[in-house]
Design a protein around this nucleic acid. Structure first.
Length: 259
DNA sequence: CCTCCCTTTCCTGTTT
DNA sequence: TAAACAGGAAAGGGAG
């Protein structure tokens, strides 16, 4: 009676977001630190630099924290180096996020070894989350917003017409501005700077395709259109971070003060 | 019909 | 290695 591949478990666990998934391309952002849902299903010791960054990103997502909460540049290393860091190293590299990261990586190292057993644990998201990290103090002076009331469901109202803008960048903006309509597709990385990140790139592409009555839309093609925006300064480049974009000077209507 | 603009499609090469 | 990123080239298609 083996519990094996992640697909079975994924299908059991899919979804805090509810309806719009079925896209295994992007890991669900949810629950504990256990590794079955992790994008890197290898042991952390063998992660590439990029996988290390993905992990950081995931930890931020789990805590609903802003990207500025972790100095990414202090983690310019591969999995082997990461795993050799001590608790003190984590404190130095990430301040008050250090303990969280240390705990996460410790657990992942452990679960890499015993993932069979772990596969049977943890079907109780909230539980392991809150128990593992009861109170973490966040960096002082951080803008981090502890609660955006993620639990307000706000009627999905599927019958209403699509109020999102007709141009691609407006469409993206309007998803960001109305996350309750499409939770978990795109999220703000830095609200005031207009930095955002695709969480489910293919799902967004599908949605865009649906709007344009084009069932063959992909993120590949959508992203080409996004890149054209750089020249027009509707978007600004964000280097080095995959699926991350930033609104530029010619993008209107995304600021909180614009509302 | 023509032009302009905003993509869409496809592609080759690079990076992570 | 797969998925993103970079842009060139060219075609599509709607608005005016």
């Amino acid at each position: 009676m083996s519990v094996s591949p992640s697909t079975t478990l994924d299908s059991q666990l899919t979804t805090t977001w509810g309806t719009t998934n079925s896209h295994p391309d992007v890991p669900m952002v949810m629950s504990g630190y256990t590794s079955r849902l992790w994008p890197c299903d290898t042991e952390p010791q063998f992660w590439s630099k990029y996988q290390v960054w993905e992990w950081l990103q995931q930890v931020l997502d789990m805590h609903q924290m802003d990207v500025s909460s972790i100095p990414f540049q202090n983690f310019d290393m591969d999995g082997h180096q990461l795993c050799s860091l001590s608790y003190q190293d984590f404190l130095r590299a990430a301040g008050s996020m250090g303990p969280i990261l240390f705990q996460s990586i410790t657990e992942l190292k452990w679960s890499g070894q015993y993932h069979m057993e772990l596969g049977q644990l943890e079907l109780k998201p909230e539980l392991d989350f809150s128990c593992t990290f009861p109170d973490v103090s966040y960096p002082p002076g951080e803008i981090y917003n502890p609660l955006n009331h993620p639990l307000t469901p706000a009627s999905p109202n599927p019958s209403s017409p699509d109020p999102r803008g007709t141009h691609l960048w407006e469409f993206i903006r309007d998803i960001l501005l109305n996350p309750e309509r499409n939770p978990g597709l795109i999220k703000w990385e830095d609200r005031t700077e207009g930095v955002f990140r695709f969480l489910k790139s293919e799902a967004v592409a599908q949605l865009w395709g649906k709007k344009k009555n084009n069932s063959s839309m992909t993120y590949e093609k959508l992203s080409r259109a996004m890149r054209y925006y750089y020249k027009r300064e509707i978007l600004e480049r964000v280097d080095g971070r995959r699926l991350v974009y930033k609104f530029g000077r010619n993008a209107r209507g995304w600021r909180e003060s614009d509302k």
